[in-house]
Design a protein around this nucleic acid. Structure first.
Length: 191
DNA sequence: CTCTGGATTAGCT
DNA sequence: GCTAATCCAGAGC
C-alpha cells in the first residue's frame, strides 16, 4: 500500500522512524526497483544547523519548503546524489534523508547500475548501504528533485505488509557526515 | 568574480 | 585511518 500525503505531514522525527521497514520503489524503463528502508536521518527546520534550510530559502533547497510528500534530491561532493523525503507543512523546511536500503526486487539491475558507475562488481550487501550508493543503484538524480512521491509513477514508498517494526529494533544515534548539530540523535537504523 | 567546503565514497596505507 | 575525486551552492568582496 502506497504511503499517502497524511503520513508525510506528521512530525519529521516520527516520519523518519516510521519509514524504517517501508519499501522504497523506483520505476525506470518499466522495471520496478525495490528496497526496504533500513536507515534514515531527520533534518528539521531553520533552527537545525545541519539542515540545508538553516540559512533560509535558496534555489537549491526550495523543495524543502514544500508541503510534505515530495522528493528533495541534491548533488554533493562533486559526484553523488542524496535522496530526501520532504515532511510536515508548507514553509516549514524539513526532510528525512534516506541513508540506506536493502534491495529486494530487481537486485541484478541495481548491481548493474552500480557497476556502470563505479566500473566494477559490487557485493549484494554493498549495493545501497549508503545515501550516494542507493541513488546510483536506483538511478536517482536531479530529475527527481521535487517529484511528488504520493502521485508519481517513477518514485514512491509503500508500507511493508510482512514487516512489523518493533520499537526495540530501532537504534538512534547522532547524524553522520555533518559538522554542526551533532548532538541530536536524529539518525534511525534497524538493528 | 573567486573561494571554500560539503547530509560521500573507494582505494590505499 | 587518510585522502583524492570532482562540482556547485553559498558567501564574501
Amino acid at each position: 500500500m502506497r504511503l499517502k500525503s497524511n503520513f508525510f505531514h506528521q512530525p519529521t522525527l516520527k516520519v523518519a522512524e516510521e519509514l524504517l521497514g517501508c519499501i522504497l520503489v523506483r520505476k525506470v524503463d518499466g522495471q520496478l526497483l525495490k528496497g526496504i528502508i533500513i536507515e534514515t536521518e531527520a533534518y528539521i527546520g531553520k533552527n537545525d544547523p545541519a539542515c540545508h534550510a538553516s540559512r533560509g530559502k535558496t534555489k537549491r533547497n526550495q523543495v524543502m519548503f514544500e508541503k510534505g510528500g515530495v522528493a528533495y534530491v541534491y548533488f554533493t561532493y562533486g559526484m553523488y546524489h542524496c535522496l530526501n523525503i520532504v515532511t510536515e507543512q508548507k514553509d516549514f523546511p524539513s526532510a528525512v534523508l534516506i541513508r540506506a536500503i536493502k534491495p529486494i526486487s530487481n537486485i541484478a539491475q541495481m548491481k548493474k547500475n552500480r557497476k556502470k558507475f563505479g566500473g566494477r562488481e559490487v557485493k549484494d550487501d554493498e549495493i545501497a548501504n549508503g545515501p550516494g550508493k542507493l541513488c546510483v543503484a536506483m538511478n536517482i538524480d536531479l530529475n527527481l528533485n521535487g517529484e511528488n512521491i504520493v502521485k508519481s509513477n517513477k518514485l514512491w514508498i509503500e508500507k511493508n505488509p510482512t514487516f512489523e517494526i518493533k520499537t526495540l529494533k530501532i537504534k538512534k544515534t547522532s547524524r553522520i557526515g555533518i559538522s554542526k548539530g551533532k548532538s541530536k540523535l536524529w539518525r534511525f537504523l534497524l538493528k
